[in-house]
């Protein structure tokens, strides 16, 4: 469990933080107790439940419904497997967030199929779009389905279990040569949204592309993500959940925990380890160990939320 749970008391845990520098990028990475290991979803869910009965929610990401290339000819099938895993959890999560790239090509049938499978979890799902969800010519299918009650291109906030959640959109109006983009309008809204919130309120920011700079050479970062992080600086507990890079990465910086979830569709290579960030073909037997979901557990009076990454298999 210790290798899985990032929610320990910050001070004592920080003593065992391992730091390493990603060669060539100058980015400082911290790994809490090593890279999250594989663990069966039922085991991990029971363990999390044993430690704290607090609020828990799930993150799924990058389901890419419609993808049928060699890296995974049946992305809908692995999404269904993920939902089956979720349904087998002994403790029902409060809700789910989906951090974008629901579909591969924004086709109506892809959205319909995704919804048909995800709704089998019988959980409320809070979505943010990925760039693959805005590909239809009129850019309306995502917003028709998931945009109700949101602002701008689809950003919004809500409160659950004493935690303030903010869903952000950083896949619109991208600039040549740049990274993900939030834009001035959304940033102004965010600043306003957080104004007046007690600094002891745990904050969860979620968006598709990492809000932190993971690997700019592959566009893995958000141009103005630093502005958003400035607005949450004073808060005691901040968790930033992203997708897009189809692998687990975590960084802890002061009171802020950054985490990316696995895809349910196909893995992507670690930064700089392949000619491009495109879908990574692995042996069939290995695929499901590289796909998965994350569950996030919030315990009152604990600074950090515990994040448990669970592969589909392994």
């Amino acid at each position: 469990m210790s290798g899985q749970d990032h929610g320990d008391d910050g001070v004592s845990r920080r003593k065992v933080l391992e730091c390493m520098t990603w060669a060539g990028t100058g980015v400082l990475w911290t790994v809490t107790g090593g890279v999250p290991r594989s663990l069966g979803i039922i085991d991990s869910a029971q363990a999390a439940n044993a430690v704290a009965p607090g609020m828990s929610f799930l993150q799924i990401s990058d389901s890419h419904v419609g993808f049928d290339k060699p890296a995974n000819p049946n992305a809908l099938g692995t999404l269904e497997e993920a939902v089956s895993k979720i349904n087998a959890m002994p403790t029902k999560p409060s809700f789910m967030i989906h951090t974008g790239d629901i579909t591969h090509l924004s086709k109506a049938a892809e959205f319909d199929n995704a919804d048909r499978i995800i709704s089998q979890s019988k959980l409320d799902v809070h979505y943010v779009p990925g760039e693959h969800d805005f590909l239809d010519e009129d850019v309306k299918l995502y917003r028709e389905r998931y945009g109700r009650g949101t602002r701008g291109q689809g950003w919004y906030s809500f409160d659950a279990g004493g935690v303030h959640f903010v869903g952000l959109v950083n896949v619109v109006d991208l600039k040549a040569g740049g990274l993900g983009n939030l834009g001035a309008e959304q940033l102004a809204w965010l600043e306003d949204d957080l104004r007046g919130k007690s600094k002891s309120t745990p904050i969860v920011l979620f968006a598709h592309i990492p809000l932190w700079t993971v690997y700019p050479e592959w566009g893995w970062g958000t141009e103005d993500g630093g502005r958003a992080l400035e607005y949450v600086k004073g808060f005691g507990s901040v968790t930033v959940l992203n997708g897009h890079i189809h692998q687990v990465m975590q960084k802890v910086e002061g009171n802020v925990t950054f985490h990316t979830a696995r895809s349910t569709a196909f893995p992507q290579p670690a930064p700089g380890t392949a000619p491009s960030p495109g879908p990574m073909k692995v042996e069939d037997a290995k695929l499901r160990s590289m796909l998965g979901v994350a569950s996030i557990n919030f315990k009152q009076n604990e600074q950090r939320l515990a994040i448990i990454d669970t592969p589909l298999q392994g």
Partner: peptide, 12 residues
Amino acid sequence: YEYFCSLHPHMT
């Protein structure tokens, strides 16, 4: 004519 990929803007 400069151009880029609007999905992956690091592609120019």
